[in-house]
């Protein structure tokens, strides 16, 4: 597995790095389990709807950094509507390709950008925030990967019960006590769901 020169350039010299003061929108996506996490900050001109500045932070591998870097470059100067149309394929192509096992990094980068745009639209009243429901929890649980199978815990049918009431999310995961990944999966679920302000407490059993 090798990275090409363009990926290495964006990894070694990432563009638009750093935390932004007073951003118009922000979003963090990713998974501690997989070891990749991206935060995007956007500055958007309300009248022109142009993304005037993009900054990012990345906890992840070389391709995580490179894909976030190139996504920030591609989003900058675009209108919100055009930026929403960006695809992981375009990110990958702009980097002249990625190793197969690293494609998910371009998916994460573009998803995080779109989450940040969604944050902007909600703040400006351009769209209504999706209500936080059991479905939201299921969507988030699909991002929790069980390492030995390299699949998410929903696809593996490990999630046996989900309940959300009065800010308390209760999730029952079918993992034996001796499973060495159990504690980490539980931590990952708590970390992922705790990002939602609607969630006051996460109970995982």
């Amino acid at each position: 597995m090798e990275y090409n020169d363009k990926v290495m350039d964006h990894f070694a010299n990432p563009r638009n790095v750093g935390k932004m003061d007073n951003p118009d929108a922000t979003a963090t996506e990713g998974s501690y389990t997989c070891g990749d996490l991206v935060t995007f900050y956007l500055k958007i001109n309300d009248s022109s709807q142009i993304i005037e500045d993009v900054k990012f932070l990345s906890y992840g591998c070389a391709s995580n950094i490179a894909t976030a870097s190139v996504t920030s470059e591609m989003a900058k100067g675009k209108t919100v509507e055009d930026a929403k149309k960006l695809t992981w394929k375009e990110i990958t192509d702009e980097l002249n390709g990625l190793p197969g096992s690293k494609i998910h990094c371009s998916v994460l980068a573009v998803d995080t950008l779109k989450s940040a745009i969604k944050d902007y639209e909600i703040k400006k009243g351009l769209r209504v925030a999706d209500p936080f429901t059991k479905d939201t929890i299921f969507q988030e649980l699909k991002k929790v990967i069980y390492p030995p199978a390299s699949e998410d815990i929903c696809t593996l049918k490990m999630v046996k019960y989900v309940y959300f009431d009065d800010g308390i999310a209760t999730i029952i995961v079918d993992l034996p006590n001796y499973d060495q990944y159990k504690e980490h999966i539980f931590e990952d679920i708590k970390e992922t769901l705790s990002r939602y302000p609607e969630v006051k407490e996460v109970k995982v059993q």
Binding site: Y32, T33, C34, G35, D36, G60, C61, S63, N64, S101, P147, P148, S150, Q180, Y181, H184, E187, D188
Partner: peptide, 20 residues
Amino acid sequence: ACASQGLKPNYVLIATGRSF
């Protein structure tokens, strides 16, 4: 995990109580 073939964290570190 990112540097491993199967994108898995190191089994020895996990088995000795290290976090992901």
